[in-house]
Amino acid sequence: MFEARLVQSSILKKVLEAIKDLLNEATFDCSDSGIQLQAMDNSHVSLVSMNLRSDGFDKYRCDRNISMGMNLGSMTKILKCAANEDVVTMKAQDNADTVTFVFESPNQEKVSDYEMKLMNLDQEHLGIPETEYACVVRLPAGEFARICRDLSQFGESVVISCTKEGVKFSSAGDIGSANIKLAQTSNVDKEELAVTVEMQEPVTLTFASRYLNSFTKATSLSNVVQLSMSPDVPLVVEYRIGEIGHIRYYLAPKIED
């Protein structure tokens, strides 16, 4: 029996919002440590890795490890039926072929349950090596989303170059070119407004704008986003999910042809 109860259904709604553009379906791997998801988009250029720890749930029971193949379009439709302040419970019998979502209104006057068929998805798991990144940038998530959106109007690629002074985002195309430079903030009163750069060595990498824009769908989950870069390895874009976990997006850099 698997059962996971979350008082804030908005977390699960935002997680679906953050992955449904990139992935049509994904396997939720549930164990007693929590729920993990790892899936590449159809082009195999980007990957989503999500982790929701069991201790972040209000109630969590997982008698035996269970992998639930979910159609994310269907799951999104079901989660749209939950109000933000509803309590959501996901539950499935062992080796079940369906999963049930129960939404309870705060005053318990309305209880809804939705049963969704599970899919048999072949699991192609990628080994992601632990990496000491040359540059780790933390900046306001809203700022990053704004930069990706503005620059994607200029070209299909964004060049991110990171030095100890700060980080520069550039794009060029038919209409012209654009550069956005963010300096490291010195002393900001609020942590979530800071721009910080931890640099071992300067890095300049080129990425496809459309994937960066898909990643920023996770902006509602966290005030801060973290970009980790090293020469010639995939970019990591990480959003924390409250105190319960994180979503990490990996994107292969473009290379000189």
């Binding site: 590449m40 798991h125 990628l126 080994g127 992601i128 090596p129 995939p234 292969a252 850099p253 042809d257």
Partner: peptide, 14 residues
């Protein structure tokens, strides 16, 4: 022109 490699060029399966 920049080429777009796949993630499987960087991460191994399994």
């Amino acid at each position: 022109k920049k080429a777009q490699p796949k993630l499987t060029n960087f991460f191994c399966k399994g």
